[in-house]
Design a protein around this nucleic acid. Structure first.
Lengths: 420, 420
DNA sequence: AAATTAAATTTAGCGGTTGAAGTAAATATT
DNA sequence: AATATTTACTTCAACCGCTAAATTTAATTT
């Protein structure tokens, strides 16, 4: 009998470093070179012998590969560091990723603010920059023109030149084909079927990768967040819409045909609330900003004209202060959120669901009560019950997620191939 | 909507043979030996050169590997066969799997009938056997005792001995850990946490693999059905419960923690109909046998005491004959089925959903109207809209699925390793 | 019969990896 | 202080899986 997949979920805390932490035994045939690099990166630093044992490869291989990676400037030996408890024998020499071996840029496009970060090879943010975004849909050309100054700003601040940037990652909401960089539809874009990757390629002299916001925030959790130490988990974000990302075997899963998973438009009610997609009963129609706001207008006599942001704040504080109608709005939203999360648990059985994004401070929605409802709606916890964590990031998280997309692409091209 | 009947054939572009059809370029590093074998099996027969081209490997490799596999008795050259249109040059020599190189047994446990099939290495059923099952939960020991005669019957009928059986596969509904053969819960078993694999290992002298019914029927579609030619598709079965299986990259996906996907207990209504799991609003509570029957009692004055099967038939014919109440029952079920399928499309975006099982002849549920509802409930079909097929198998399908589980395990152990 | 075409086989060689032997650098023992 | 012991790292021959190219085989065409 084969005792192979599905079992190993590294439940322990995430090690130093950044990037997904792969379990001991790695089934996919990634080249050893890349595996060694990724192991060192994931653990911050690691001795050759530890790397060999973790990857179940021979010490000789690690020596050779490490020498190659050092020669190529991607790794270096750590000078000293406090070593683990002194034992006999030759002390191990730790390796670490050379932080400035390459740099990447991550960009987030939204309807409020475009933001950009420049990070080094280990994900440290070197520079950041933002600008206000057009409220309405704009052309891709306009957006590229708006964002170009941000890139120049990043370069200026960090004293870097275009050619030091290995890859750029771009996050945008909508339907994105990450393999091609084609955006077939986005709430931010006036056009449909835009080759956004190509459009942005004019700003920098490097490959550009594009993905949608749900995948991007999932990558952020996988690279920098709580998901790093888990082999599989789901990420749910509630903002203008309801997004979802799923990590299986330390890898972002983008659905059968690579276009991501539309949790927001799963139906939770026959003939339910009207969704902006034109249908009824979508989860989004009970949770998203606009779903709360249109009821707020009724309940509090506010006009929907006020900007969504300000009004949501008002609604929230009203609920906090005991306004029954306002509270009822959040209560119903919480109920449906619990239902949506329970459905994820039933279908995927992840070890962890992370509620992530900027909106997580509306703790009315994300309170213990809601979590309890999820577990009440979930069937027999065959294994451990699904852990649910909320993660309120700063507003740079999307851009950082985009930089993670860029980092993984850069790793593939730079480190993956034996020289170049 | 294509309704193929019985275990007939694979209408689509699926080639001869059985087993998943892997796309040209295969990323997973399965040993070439196994890849060659699986290619020949999938296509019924294939010349060395065609195999080499399909797998993007050198002709020399195929020659060597084929020689090995022939020496080991797993492949042989096809004597003549009508070759493709005569062309110049040395004619290709087709290879085929030696059907009697090994045999497997597949067993299905249910609350009505236990069934068993013995198939050869290319999935042809050599012998079959059935017996009545206990209506109530029984002990694992009792079930094994009931099923042991079936196995002996298979061996007697086919004139085979225990040691010719390479692997046995067992299908049972409930929560099964396929890696260990542990059944943590099943509607058929009186005990919980039963090592069913071990229990059945006493009946035969070979490894035993166990999986739940939803996964088993998905394997049946992947090996013998319409799914063979698709890289990813979903299978939904409606019987006592609502089951779901998902194939991603030609491989059965069993959820993040390997315990399968509980579509039947995803919630489609807050505080909805009562489910036998004790919660409200589960999809199953609108679709399963018992869900229809409890309404039938109200609508038609039937008692629930009658066996589920007979009553459902009555209910169905009543609906067919224009009984409004009966029709209303099927109508609502169809609505919720459409909703459930739409949710699958939103989350996984499979190219194909197969509605599979014995119940598919209630075409009231599976009519074009229902399919139209699915598409109405589905958002922007970014790619091709999801095809939905219904597949009414004979009652042996579950046992055949179990044999597919056994076949793939046998392939791994026998063919996967270079000799043994 | 000779030329042509295509499939199958043979074989030299290459690259990634291991295993074992050898070297280096520390602590423990005497 | 000298030696033994332990552990990490390095070196290198050997191996395995695979490929590319040359060769052989078996058919058709001329």
């Amino acid at each position: 009998m084969s005792v192979t997949d599905a079992d190993a979920d590294n439940t322990d805390a995430a090690p130093l470093g950044c990037g997904p932490v792969f379990p001991e035994h790695n089934y996919q045939s990634r080249s050893l070179r890349k595996q060694v690099f990724e192991h060192v990166r994931a653990y911050g630093n690691a001795a050759r012998i530890d790397t060999a044992r973790a990857l179940s490869i021979s010490a000789g291989s690690v020596t050779g590969i490490a020498a190659e990676l050092i020669a190529d400037g991607f790794l270096r030996e750590v000078e000293d560091v406090s070593r683990r408890e002194m034992s006999r024998g030759r002390p191990p020499v730790a390796l670490e990723v050379v932080a400035d071996s390459f740099y990447v840029i991550g960009i987030n496009l939204s309807d409020k603010t475009h933001s950009a970060v420049l990070t080094d090879a280990i994900g440290t943010v070197i520079a950041e920059s933002k600008c206000a975004a057009d409220k309405q849909r704009g052309s891709a050309a306009k957006i590229v023109a708006d964002v170009a100054p941000l890139v120049h700003d990043l370069l200026a601040t960090s004293g870097m030149t275009k050619d030091q940037i290995a890859v750029m990652g771009v996050a945008i909401s909508g339907a994105v084909d990450h393999t091609t960089g084609f955006v077939s539809w986005s709430p931010q874009l006036a056009e449909i079927n835009v080759d956004l990757g190509k459009a942005f390629a004019e700003v920098v002299d490097c490959p550009v990768f594009v993905d949608n916001d749900a995948n991007i925030i999932t990558l952020a959790e996988l690279w920098f967040g709580e998901g790093r130490a888990k082999s599989n988990f789901a990420v749910v974000t509630v903002e203008h819409g309801v997004g979802m990302g799923l990590v299986l075997n330390n890898r972002l899963f983008r659905g059968a045909r690579g276009m991501g998973m539309e949790l927001g438009h799963t139906k939770v009610q026959l003939d339910g609330a009207l969704c902006r997609c034109g249908q009824r009963g979508c989860l989004e129609a009970y949770l998203a900003d606009y779903a709360l706001m249109r009821e707020a207008a009724t309940a509090l006599g506010l006009t929907v004209n006020q900007t969504s942001k300000v009004s949501l704040e008002v609604l929230f504080s009203e609920a906090k202060q005991g306004n029954t109608a306002a509270k009822a709005i959040f209560d119903r939203a919480a109920k449906y959120l619990a239902l949506g999360l329970a459905n994820i648990v039933q279908l995927f059985d992840p070890a962890l669901i992370i509620l992530s994004g900027e909106r997580m401070r509306y703790d009315y929605l994300y309170a213990d009560d809601m979590l309890a409802q999820v577990h009440r709606l979930t069937l027999n916890p065959g294994s451990e019950p699904c852990e649910i964590a909320t993660h309120a990031w700063g507003d740079l998280i999307w851009a950082r997620g985009a930089s993670a997309l860029a980092l993984s692409a850069a790793t593939d091209t730079l480190v993956g191939s034996p020289r170049q």
